Simulated scan of single mutants.
Amino acid sequence: MNRRQLLGAVGGGASISVCGFLKTMSSNDEEVAYPKVSVHGDTTDPERNVALSVEVIQQFSRESPAEIQVAFTNTAESAREFYFGSTPPFSEYLSTERNDGTQLVAIPRNRSHISLGDVNDATGESSENQEIVPERPLDGCWRLHGDLAVWGFANQKTVKPGETLQEKFTVLDYSDNTTCLPGGEYRFVSPNYFGQNNPWGFTVELTYSE
């Protein structure tokens, strides 16, 4: 199943969002303005007995792109079975396309089934050893370079009472964008996170100082 696209989570997948606007672009780092990242998670029905959160753990800088973390906690008094996507507790890596056609990507720390080339249909392992998260910005822009291939699969987890699953994600500009990190809000949403047509997601906002 080769898919040159970002696959949504299966069953219990999740979502994220990002927004930003790069005011100046130059190979001279002193001329680059990096946005501040903030995140806003959707509310969760208390009757589900789970707690979902998203937080910023690293801002954009000359040295590194922004990072966010998604956490899922079983707040029930007993162990329970949950179905997630490839990277529990969140497996939606591409934001919803905005009216201007721009998007962002959130690359998980666990990249065993993600590549910038094809993936092996039988195993899901990356067929090319390519750098997904760049070591440095190109002309000041932290951007995904190329098509992202993802091997999507269901991931069943037994979560103990009080146990938390979490995953960190690197925020990058999408390779198809014509400008770097255009401003506004971006939504990452899993449409079936709590079952059919029961979504969960959150918004990440990037803002700039005047």
Score class of each variant (00 low, 15 high):
96 T>M: 06
96 T>I: 06
97 E>P: 05
97 E>F: 03
97 E>M: 04
99 N>E: 05
99 N>G: 07
100 D>Q: 06
101 G>E: 09
102 T>I: 01
102 T>Y: 01
102 T>R: 00
103 Q>F: 00
103 Q>A: 01
104 L>F: 10
104 L>K: 00
105 V>Y: 02
105 V>Q: 02
105 V>M: 03
105 V>D: 00
106 A>F: 12
107 I>N: 02
107 I>C: 01
108 P>F: 09
109 R>F: 11
109 R>T: 13
110 N>A: 15
110 N>L: 11
112 S>H: 15
112 S>G: 12
112 S>D: 15
113 H>K: 15
114 I>L: 15
114 I>G: 07
115 S>T: 14
116 L>W: 12
117 G>N: 15
117 G>P: 14
117 G>K: 12
118 D>N: 15
119 V>I: 13
119 V>R: 02
119 V>N: 11
120 N>Y: 13
120 N>V: 13
121 D>K: 12
122 A>W: 04
122 A>Y: 11
123 T>F: 08
123 T>E: 12
123 T>S: 12
123 T>A: 09
125 E>I: 15
126 S>N: 14
126 S>G: 12
126 S>M: 14
129 N>R: 13
130 Q>A: 13
131 E>Y: 14
131 E>K: 12
134 P>E: 08
134 P>M: 01
135 E>V: 08
135 E>L: 14
135 E>D: 11
136 R>D: 09
137 P>L: 03
139 D>P: 05
139 D>T: 11
141 C>A: 11
142 W>S: 00
142 W>G: 00
143 R>H: 05
144 L>Y: 06
144 L>G: 03
145 H>N: 05
145 H>A: 05
145 H>M: 07
145 H>E: 06
145 H>R: 06
145 H>T: 07
147 D>K: 13
148 L>A: 12
148 L>N: 11
149 A>G: 03
149 A>P: 00
149 A>C: 04
150 V>L: 04
150 V>Q: 05
150 V>Y: 00
150 V>R: 02
150 V>D: 03
151 W>E: 07
152 G>H: 13
152 G>R: 09
153 F>T: 04
154 A>T: 01
155 N>A: 00
156 Q>V: 04
156 Q>T: 11
157 K>Y: 01
157 K>L: 02
159 V>S: 02
159 V>D: 02
160 K>Y: 04
160 K>F: 03
160 K>R: 07
161 P>Q: 08
161 P>D: 13
162 G>E: 08
163 E>C: 06
164 T>V: 01
165 L>W: 05
165 L>H: 08
165 L>T: 03
166 Q>T: 06
167 E>I: 05
167 E>H: 04
167 E>D: 12
168 K>E: 10
168 K>D: 06
168 K>S: 06
168 K>L: 02
169 F>I: 10
169 F>P: 07
169 F>K: 09
170 T>M: 02
170 T>W: 03
170 T>Y: 01
170 T>L: 06
171 V>L: 13
171 V>A: 05
172 L>Y: 02
173 D>H: 04
173 D>R: 03
175 S>V: 15
175 S>D: 15
175 S>I: 14
175 S>F: 15
177 N>R: 09
177 N>A: 14
178 T>R: 12
178 T>G: 02
179 T>N: 07
179 T>R: 09
182 P>Q: 10
183 G>E: 12
184 G>Q: 09
184 G>I: 13
185 E>L: 09
185 E>R: 11
187 R>S: 10
187 R>N: 06
187 R>Q: 07
189 V>W: 04
189 V>H: 06
190 S>P: 10
190 S>R: 13
191 P>V: 03
